[in-house]
Simulated scan of single mutants.
Amino acid sequence: MIIVAGAAWWWLVLVYLMFGVGIGASRPCAQVLLVNLLPKEALVAGNGAMSFIDNLAAVILPATVGVLIILWDPVWGILIDGITFFCAAIFTASLPDMEAHDSDEMLTLRAAFNGMAVICRHPTLTLGFAATLVVNVLCFPVFLVVAPYAVSARFGDAMWAICLAASGAGACIGSVVTVLAAGHQRLNGLAVISGLILSAAMVLLGIAGAAWIIVLGAVLVGFVEASWLTGWATSMQILSPQNDLGKVVAMDTFITNGAYPFIYLGSGLVAGVVGYPETLIIVAIICAMGTAGVALASALQASGSGRVPK
Results as ranks from 00 to 15, higher is better:
Ala45Cys: 01
Trp72Met: 06
Phe86Trp: 09
Leu12Lys: 04
Cys163Glu: 05
Ala7Cys: 07
Thr279Glu: 03
Gly174Cys: 03
Pro148Gly: 02
Thr234Glu: 02
Leu109Glu: 04
Ser305Cys: 09
Ile90His: 03
Asp102Trp: 15
Leu12Gln: 05
Met1Gly: 15
Tyr264Asn: 15
Ile173His: 03
Gly174Asn: 09
Leu269Trp: 13
Thr108Glu: 07
Leu187Val: 10
Leu43His: 13
Leu216Glu: 00
Ala302Ser: 09
Val146Met: 02
Ile60Cys: 03
Ala150Cys: 00
Gly293Met: 08
Ala112Ile: 11
Pro28Val: 11
Arg154Met: 01
Ile70Cys: 04
His122Thr: 13
Leu33Tyr: 10
Thr108Asn: 02
Asn257Val: 14
Asn243Gly: 10
Lys310Ile: 08
Ala25Ile: 10
Ala211Gly: 03
Gln301Asp: 14
Ala201Gln: 00
Ala271Val: 10
Asp73Phe: 12
Glu105Phe: 12
Pro261Ile: 10
Gly217Ala: 05
Ser267Arg: 06
Ile193Tyr: 08
Gly258Glu: 11
Arg110Pro: 03
Gly266Trp: 05
Ala42Cys: 01
Ala182Trp: 02
Trp212Arg: 04
Ala181Pro: 01
Leu220Tyr: 01
Val4Met: 07
Ala302Arg: 08
Thr84Trp: 03
Thr291Gly: 09
Gln301Leu: 15
Gly77Leu: 06
Ala158Val: 00
Ala5Leu: 12
Ala42Phe: 08
Ala226Met: 06
Gly183Asp: 05
Cys87Ile: 15
Thr64Met: 09
Ser305Ala: 09
Ala88Pro: 02
Gly156Gln: 06
Arg307Thr: 14
Cys172Ile: 14
Gly246Val: 13
Asp102His: 12
Phe155Gln: 04
Pro141Met: 15
Gly77Thr: 11
Gly115Glu: 07
Ala45His: 12
Lys247Val: 05
Met1Ser: 15
Gly82Cys: 06
Pro261Gln: 11
Val294Lys: 12
Ala150Leu: 03
Ala158Met: 00
Val44Ser: 04
Pro28His: 04
Val294Gln: 12
Ala58Glu: 13
Ile162Gly: 07
Ala161Gly: 13
Cys163Ile: 03
Leu245Phe: 02
Met159Tyr: 02
Gly246Asp: 04
Thr92Asp: 07
Phe140Lys: 06
Ala295Met: 12
Gly66Asn: 01
Thr124Pro: 09
Gly290Thr: 12
Ala169Cys: 05
Val21Gly: 14
His101Glu: 14
Ser152Leu: 02
Ile80Ala: 13
Val219His: 01
Met289Asp: 11
Asp102Gly: 14
Leu269Gly: 05
Gly24Leu: 13
Ser199Glu: 00
Glu105Asp: 14
Leu280Thr: 00
Gly258Pro: 10
Val67Cys: 11
Ala112His: 11
Asn36Leu: 00
Pro141Ile: 10
Ala165Val: 04
Ser240Gln: 03
Leu79Glu: 09
Val118His: 00
Asp97Gln: 06
Val270Asp: 05
Gly222Val: 07
Gly170Ser: 02
Thr132Arg: 11
Arg27Val: 14
Ala233Lys: 06
Ser194Ile: 01
Ala165Ser: 11
Met251Trp: 13
Ala131Asn: 09
Ala288Met: 08
Val176Pro: 09
Ile214Cys: 01
Phe254Ala: 15
Ile60Arg: 02
